[in-house]
Design a protein around this nucleic acid. Structure first.
Length: 270
DNA sequence: AACCTGGGCAACCGCACTTTT
DNA sequence: AAAAAGTGCGGTTGCCCAGGT
């Protein structure tokens, strides 16, 4: 998967409006799994990875935007104390939030906390009131707030192995890639995280937004997304030809863009 | 008004794991 | 069974902007 297009340089950096739109369209067409393929046929000079990231973190129709609610904040703290830096896992418990978002939140949040703590400790004050954040203070053992990996569970590669590789944990990351899409209330989630870990993996939202994405975004595909099997159709000639075939002739046409109010949160939160 | 600083966020990188050939 | 390709995850970096000096 080395080069999307050998002769053309792979684009990096911020995504443009047009790129976003193209990506949304092609995800609508092909689903949100085959990123390399999408990268290729879409004509975006991006890597599959980059496409995936953009989709997951920004373009996904299920994304919630704006500040974390206090409940969410608390949940993040709670889950982090339980699972450590397993951001994607934590993110699954927070409808519409991405791992990246949570990670960023945690980082800044914990930085603040650390500073507060430092302040609280250094000027001979003995107050240890990090009241609201339940277990965060369990990291007092000297490890930095941010790098802790949580309390009991360190997000080490060993753990990772258990979760991804070992059968028992597999439900987490793999079998749930097509998770059912039911929404959880925060209460549900709270209940959920109190369950033993094995049982607690009940994703909140999944990657199967193909349909939604399609509806919301892609005027080219007004009806439900192409079934997966359609992919095979395009396998025949998934390179240049198909690119030409699907690429909107004029992505800037108003009609084309009308279905996609560019990238701003309001339009994405659905 | 200009500069500095810190927060927030988007995106990239490298690695590990899974799936396909 | 092994190799290659594809995908997901966590860590990190860099940019932008708002607020303070």
């Amino acid at each position: 998967m080395k080069m999307v297009q050998d002769h053309q340089e792979i684009r990096k950096g911020p995504w443009t409006e047009q790129e976003d739109f193209q990506l949304v369209c092609f995800v609508g067409l092909f689903g949100d799994r085959r990123w390399d393929f999408i990268a290729k046929v879409s004509g975006l000079n991006r890597t599959g990875k980059s496409c995936r990231l953009r989709w997951v973190n920004y373009l996904h129709p299920g994304l919630k935007r704006g500040k974390m609610t206090p409940q969410e904040e608390r949940l993040v703290l709670e889950l982090h104390s339980k699972w450590g830096n397993r951001w994607s896992r934590i993110a699954r418990k927070l409808p519409g939030r991405t791992d990246n978002e949570i990670k960023n939140y945690w980082r800044t949040h914990m930085r603040k906390k650390a500073q507060e703590k430092k302040r609280a400790v250094s000027p001979s004050s003995s107050s240890s009131n990090c009241s609201s954040s339940s277990n965060i203070t369990t990291n007092e053992g000297g490890a930095s707030f941010y790098d802790t990996g949580g309390v009991g569970i360190v997000a080490s590669s060993a753990e990772k192995k258990n979760i991804n590789g070992g059968d028992p944990g597999k439900e987490d990351d793999n079998n749930t890639t097509k998770r059912d899409q039911r929404e959880y209330s925060l209460d549900d989630i709270w209940e959920d995280i109190n369950l033993p870990e094995v049982n607690s993996i009940e994703p909140v939202y999944d990657g199967s937004y193909g349909e939604e994405a399609c509806k919301f975004a892609c005027p080219l595909v007004a009806s439900p997304p192409l079934p997966l099997s359609w992919d095979s159709l395009f396998k025949m000639d998934e390179d240049q030809e198909s690119k030409n075939m699907f690429l909107p002739a004029t992505p800037n046409d108003n009609q084309f863009l009308s279905g996609f109010e560019y990238g701003r949160p309001s339009s994405l939160t659905g």
